[in-house]
Design a protein around this nucleic acid. Structure first.
Length: 819
DNA sequence: GCGGACTGCTTACCT
DNA sequence: ACAGGTAAGCAGTCCGCG
C-alpha cells in the first residue's frame, strides 16, 4: 500500500497486505540501496572523489536507439543521491537521479501496491488472482502485456479495515482556528467494522447525550486526544477530510501546546504543499502506524472531479462533495461550534466522521476500488495516489515500464533539446501549438440529426500512428521507414513500436476491448459488473489525461512535437470523415474535436462512413447520440437538443452556467421544458409563445422588486487569493471586501455578489436589499441568457418582447439604421 | 466628454 | 500543476468626433 525510507534502520520499508488480508510492514532484507546512474566510468568517478559502489551496466537508451554503458552509483542514503547529483552536474550529469528512493524501492522489489503479498525466500511476491479470459488477439500490440494487466486489474480488491476521524475545536465565532490556543472539544471515530465512538470534554449535558454511538467523557484533554489516537491506530488506514491541512496539524500543535513532546503526528505546511502523516512515537515502530488518507485531496483532484463524478461538485466543502457523491449532506448547524449544546455537538461531529467513511464505502466502494486500481497500475502507494495529480501517476507507470525493460529513463532536458520544437500556430495566444477543429455550426433548427464520434480519438491516434518521444523525429538513415504527420514537418519511424504508443494504446484497449464490455455484460452478476465498471472508470481517467501530459511542461517525458502531432492527426481524421460524409450526401451541420453532427443520413451512409474510418484511418467511429432535433446559433460549443428518447441536452449556454443567478437558471429550465415537448416544426410556435411569457414574467418580477436577493446572487470561484489579483472585476472587489470584514476568502472559495445601483456596483447578497438591486443590469443579463436560445429559434430577443425599455428601443433603431 | 473598437484579464464551459 | 478552443463579462486604452 505504501513505502518510505526509514532513517532509523537505514532501510526501505513497505506496507503491504498479507495473504489473509492483514496489514504487514516489511523492512528490506535484500540490501537495496539508493543509487543513480552516470555516463562516466568508475575510474573517472573515483578520480572525481566519489566514494560509492560502482556497477557497470548496459542499458537501452531510447533517444538514440542504442545500447549504452552506464555506471550504477550505489550510495549509503537518499541524501547522498541528491549531493552526488549536484556534484556531477558539470561532469556529464546524473541519470535517474530525481527519483525518490521509495519509488525505486517499489519498482526494484517488484512489489505491487494495492495487492496482497506473500513472503518467499526473503522476497515479497504479489498475489495475482485475476483471470484473463477472451483476450482479443487482433489489434492488441502486446498480448502478453495485455494479459498481465487484465490479471492484475481483475484481482479482487480486499476490504481494508479503516476508520474515519473528525475533530471539533472550541474556537469562538465561525473562525477556523490555526493556532492551538483553543481546546479540542470532540473527536469522533467511525469505522467500517462497527466502531462508532465520540470522545468529548466534560461539559453540561455531556452525560445525557443520546446518540447511536458510544460516548466517552473526559476531564483531561490530553488523555482524550491520546485515547482517541490510540484507538485510531488499531486500524491500518485512517480517513479524514482535510486532515492534511487541519485535523492532524491541529492535534499535533495542540498536544505540543499542552506539553507533550513526542507527538504521533508529523506535518508539513506551505512550500511544497501540505500533508500530515502519523509517525511512531518512542518505543513503537512503523508497523504500528496507520496510513493517513485525506479524501479532500482526492476529491480536489480535477481529474477525479471531472471524469469520474461528472463535475458533480463545484467546491470542496464536505457538504457539497458528500451531496454529489453519496447524496447526503451535513447536519445544519444552528450556531457556532463553540456554542453548541453537548447533544448537537456530538451529533454533528459523528455525522462528519460517518460521511467521511461513507465517501469510501458508497456505490459499491467505488472510491476505494478506484484508489486501489490507480495504485496497481501506476505502482504508487495510496499516500501518493491521493495527494498527487494524474501526471504523477502516469509518470510512475511509464518509469516502471522503462525499468523493467532495462531502458534508461531520459532526462527531461534531453528529450526537450532533441524533440522540443513545435511548428503550428495556436489559435489562443500563449499556447504552444494548434489544437482541435470546431466546425462552424449551421444556425437554425435541425431535425433528424445523428452524432458520430471517434472513441478516444487522441489515444487512438497515438496508438495507430506510433507516436512516442523516441519514434518522433528520430535520427534515421534512408532505409528506415517513416510516416509523415500532416500540417507539420514531423515524421515518425514505424519500424519500432514507440513505448508511449504501446502503453497508452494498451490502456485504451484494456478499457475498450475488455473492461468496458464486461461492465455492461448482463450475463454477469451485478457486483462483478460494478467491479469492472470501477476498473474501466480508473482506466478512463488515465486515458483522458495521457495526451494532455505530453504537452505539460512538468511531465517527465514532456514532448511538445508528440502532443502537436497528436492534435494534427486528430484534425486530419475528423476532416477526412467530414469530407467523406459530404461526399456520400449527408449534411454536416457541426462538429467539435472528435465528433460530427450529420443530418438526413440514412443508415447505409452511417455504416459506409464507419467502414471507411476503420479501413482507411484505422479508427472506430461510433454513433454517440441520435437527436429528435438540435438547435444552433452561430456560436460554437453552444447548443440545445432533444434526443429521440426525450432527453434534453444543453451545451455551453449561459442558462446552465454555475455563475448565472438562480432566478434566471429557473426561467431557462422552464423554457427548456417547453422545448422538450416539441416533436415537429409546428409545435415550435406554441413553445415560442410560452417562452415569451416566461421571459416577461421574469422581467415583471425584477421590476416589481418582489424577490429574494439571493435569487440574483452570482457565484464565482476564485482561482487566486484575493490579494494576488490586479484586476478590478466585481468578484475581485467583493472578495477583497469580504476579506476586510474578516471572512476567510482564498483561492478555491466561491464568492457571491449581486449588482447594486451606485458606487461599489456589487455587494455580497447578505448586505443588499431588494430596493438597491441594479434592475437594468439584471435585465441585460436576462437578455444574454435567453438570447442564445431565442436566436437559435430564428428570432431576436427584442422582437419577441417588444421594446421593453428605452435602451432596447434605441438599440433597435440604431441597428435598423445601420442595416 | 462619450461611445465604439480594441486588448487584457478572468471565469466557465466543450472535447 | 494533463491539453487547446470558444463564449462572455468587466476594466482600461485609444481614437474620433464640430
Amino acid at each position: 500500500m505504501g513505502s518510505f525510507y526509514e532513517s532509523k534502520s537505514n532501510k526501505g520499508v513497505l506496507y503491504t497486505a498479507t495473504e489473509e488480508g492483514r496489514p504487514y510492514c516489511w523492512r528490506d532484507e535484500t540490501g537495496h540501496r539508493p543509487y543513480l546512474y552516470s555516463p562516466l566510468k568508475p575510474e573517472e568517478l573515483r578520480a572525481l572523489g566519489v566514494s560509492a559502489t560502482f556497477v557497470r551496466e548496459e542499458k537501452y537508451y531510447p533517444l538514440i536507439d542504442s545500447q549504452i554503458e552506464v555506471t550504477k552509483v550505489i550510495v549509503g542514503d537518499p541524501l547522498s543521491v541528491r549531493n552526488l547529483r549536484e556534484k556531477l552536474e558539470n561532469y556529464g550529469g546524473a541519470r535517474e537521479a530525481n527519483i525518490k528512493y521509495f519509488r525505486n524501492f517499489i519498482y526494484d522489489t517488484g512489489v505491487i501496491p494495492g495487492l496482497r503479498h506473500k513472503y518467499e525466500d526473503g522476497r515479497r511476491i504479489p498475489i495475482i488472482e485475476g483471470r484473463a479470459l477472451e483476450i482479443p488477439e487482433e489489434d492488441v500490440d502486446d498480448v502478453e502485456l495485455f494479459e498481465e494487466y487484465v490479471k492484475l486489474l481483475s484481482s479482487p480488491v480486499p476490504e481494508i479495515p479503516r476508520v474515519a476521524l473528525d475533530i471539533e475545536v472550541g474556537a469562538p465565532g465561525e473562525e477556523v482556528p490555526r493556532e492551538p490556543e483553543y481546546p479540542v472539544i470532540a473527536i469522533s471515530l467511525v469505522s467500517n467494522d462497527g466502531l462508532r465512538r465520540t470522545y468529548i470534554l466534560e461539559r453540561p449535558g455531556a452525560k445525557e447525550v443520546d446518540v447511536d454511538a458510544e460516548v466517552r467523557i473526559y476531564e483531561n484533554e490530553v488523555r482524550m486526544i491520546t485515547d482517541a489516537l490510540k484507538d485510531a491506530f488499531r486500524y491500518p488506514v485512517v480517513l479524514t477530510r482535510n486532515g492534511d491541512n487541519f485535523d492532524l496539524p491541529y492535534l499535533a500543535k495542540r498536544l505540543k501546546y499542552l506539553g507533550i513532546t513526542d507527538v504521533p503526528i508529523h506535518y508539513r505546511t506551505g512550500g511544497q504543499g501540505y500533508r500530515a502523516d502519523f509517525r511512531p512515537v518512542k518505543g513503537t515502530r512503523h508497523e504500528n502506524v496507520p496510513i493517513h488518507v485525506d479524501l479532500m485531496q482526492f476529491f480536489g483532484n480535477e481529474g477525479m472531479r471531472g471524469y469520474v463524478f461528472g463535475g458533480a461538485y463545484d467546491d470542496l466543502r464536505l457538504d457539497t462533495v458528500a451531496k454529489a457523491v453519496i447524496g447526503k449532506g451535513k447536519v445544519e448547524l444552528p450556531t457556532y461550534i463553540s456554542e453548541l449544546d453537548a447533544q448537537t455537538l456530538v451529533e454533528y461531529n459523528l455525522n462528519d466522521a460517518q460521511i467521511t467513511l461513507e465517501l469510501t464505502t458508497h456505490n459499491n466502494s467505488l472510491v476505494r476500488k478506484l484508489l486501489i486500481m490507480f495504485a496497481r497500475i501506476s505502482r504508487m502507494g495510496i499516500h501518493d495516489i491521493v495527494r498527487r495529480g494524474i501526471s504523477a501517476r502516469i509518470d510512475s507507470r511509464i518509469l516502471r515500464e522503462h525499468r523493467r525493460r532495462n531502458r534508461l529513463f531520459p532526462r527531461r532536458e534531453d528529450v526537450l533539446r532533441e524533440k522540443g520544437a513545435t511548428f503550428t500556430d495556436p489559435k489562443i495566444k500563449g499556447k504552444k501549438y494548434r489544437g482541435a477543429i470546431v466546425i462552424d455550426p449551421v444556425p437554425g433548427i435541425h431535425f433528424n440529426v445523428i452524432v458520430l464520434d471517434v472513441a478516444s480519438l487522441y489515444p487512438s491516434v497515438i496508438k495507430v500512428r506510433n507516436l512516442s518521444y523516441e519514434t518522433i523525429n528520430a535520427p534515421v538513415s534512408k532505409d528506415i521507414p517513416v510516416k509523415r504527420i500532416p500540417e507539420t514537418p514531423h515524421y515518425v519511424r514505424v519500424d519500432r513500436k514507440g513505448i508511449m504508443s504501446l502503453l497508452i494504446g494498451m490502456i485504451r484497449d484494456l478499457r475498450v476491448k475488455y473492461f468496458k464490455p464486461k461492465s455492461k455484460d448482463k450475463s454477469l452478476p451485478e457486483d462483478e459488473r460494478a467491479f469492472y465498471d470501477a476498473v474501466q472508470s480508473a482506466l478512463k481517467v488515465l486515458i483522458n489525461a495521457s495526451y494532455g501530459v505530453l504537452g505539460f511542461e512538468r511531465f517527465s517525458l514532456y514532448c511538445p512535437p508528440v502532443a502537436e502531432a497528436t492534435a494534427a492527426v486528430g484534425r486530419y481524421v475528423i476532416s477526412r470523415i467530414k469530407a467523406k460524409a459530404e461526399e456520400l450526401g449527408a449534411k454536416v451541420i457541426y462538429g467539435d474535436t472528435d465528433s460530427i453532427f450529420v443530418k438526413d443520413a440514412p443508415e447505409e451512409v452511417i455504416e459506409a462512413l464507419q467502414e471507411r474510418a476503420r479501413k482507411e484511418l484505422n479508427i472506430d467511429l461510433e454513433v454517440d447520440k441520435v437527436y429528435r432535433y438540435v438547435v444552433f446559433t452561430e456560436r460554437k460549443k453552444n447548443y440545445v437538443g432533444v434526443t429521440t428518447d426525450g432527453k434534453i441536452v444543453i451545451k455551453g449556454m449561459l442558462g446552465k452556467k454555475r455563475n448565472t443567478p438562480e432566478m434566471f437558471k429557473k426561467a431557462f429550465a422552464e423554457a427548456l421544458e417547453e422545448l422538450s415537448k416539441v416533436h415537429d416544426p409546428k409545435e415550435f410556435e406554441r413553445a415560442k409563445e410560452r417562452i415569451k411569457e416566461i421571459i416577461r414574467t421574469t422581467i415583471r418580477r425584477l421590476r416589481s422588486g418582489n424577490f429574494d436577493v439571493n435569487e440574483l446572487a452570482i457565484r464565482v470561484r476564485l482561482s487566486k487569493n484575493p490579494e494576488d489579483y490586479d484586476a478590478k472585476q466585481p468578484h475581485v472587489k467583493v472578495a477583497k471586501m469580504l476579506r476586510q470584514m474578516g471572512y476567510r476568502v482564498r483561492a478555491g472559495s466561491i464568492v457571491e455578489y449581486v449588482y447594486v445601483r451606485g458606487k461599489p456596483g456589487a455587494k455580497p447578497p447578505f448586505m443588499a436589499k431588494p430596493q438597491e438591486i441594479d434592475v437594468e443590469k439584471y435585465e441585460d443579463l436576462l437578455k444574454s441568457v435567453f438570447e442564445q436560445l431565442i436566436e437559435a429559434l430564428g428570432m431576436t430577443y427584442n422582437e419577441i418582447l417588444g421594446a421593453t425599455s428605452l435602451k432596447d428601443f434605441l438599440g433597435d433603431l440604431i441597428r435598423a439604421k445601420n442595416s
